[in-house]
């Protein structure tokens, strides 16, 4: 499948390219104030206010460094965490330290691992091997589409 490669804290993660709307450089945003640490706030993306979520905190428990290479990966999700009405379709911005490139990875090979849904981490999808090493698919739908998993994620960095 075609995925967007996102290295976080030395680990290679992949996002399904079909869910990605576009990749943007880091912009200024309004901070969320109180709330979970991974919820950064609201940003004006192409004239539309979009919530920003720090993916590094969710998968590696460390905030994304504010470097020139930091990117916002815009996803379109159905019935997401921030939806007020059901069936509402809206965008969400995942803040990541870096986006490498688009790549073709097969997660169905014999050497692959099926993921950790069984251990209560449904967003950690299957892991595959390619010539550069391990790459793990992040199931953003499972992560954000009204699943309880995200609600149970730590809301403070020191937890």
């Amino acid at each position: 499948m075609q995925v967007l490669l996102v290295p976080i804290a030395g680990h290679r993660y992949a996002l399904d390219a079909r869910e990605v709307v576009e990749v943007l450089p880091m912009v200024e945003y309004r901070k969320a104030g109180t709330g979970p640490a991974w919820l950064l706030g609201l940003a004006n993306l192409r004239g539309k206010l979009t919530p920003l979520v720090d993916l590094s905190i969710i998968v590696e428990r460390t905030p994304t460094a504010r470097t020139l290479g930091a990117r916002i990966v815009v996803l379109r999700l159905e019935n997401d965490l921030f939806a007020v009405r059901p069936d509402e379709s809206r965008c969400i911005g995942l803040v990541v330290p870096e986006v490498t490139r688009l790549a073709q990875v097969d997660f169905d090979q014999e050497s692959s691992h099926e993921g950790f849904a069984f251990f209560g981490a449904p967003h950690l999808g299957p892991t595959a091997l390619d010539h550069e090493g391990m790459v793990q698919l992040l199931r953003c739908r499972r992560l954000l589409e009204g699943d309880d998993a995200l609600r149970e994620l730590p809301t403070r960095m020191d937890v």
């Binding site: 967007l4 390219a17 709307v21 490139r101 688009l102």
Partner: peptide, 17 residues
């Protein structure tokens, strides 16, 4: 060069779609 790189990634995503 950086902008160009970003542009190419977004172009690839559009192409995939």
């Amino acid at each position: 060069a950086e902008q160009t790189n970003l542009l190419s990634v977004n172009a690839a995503i559009e192409a995939e779609k």
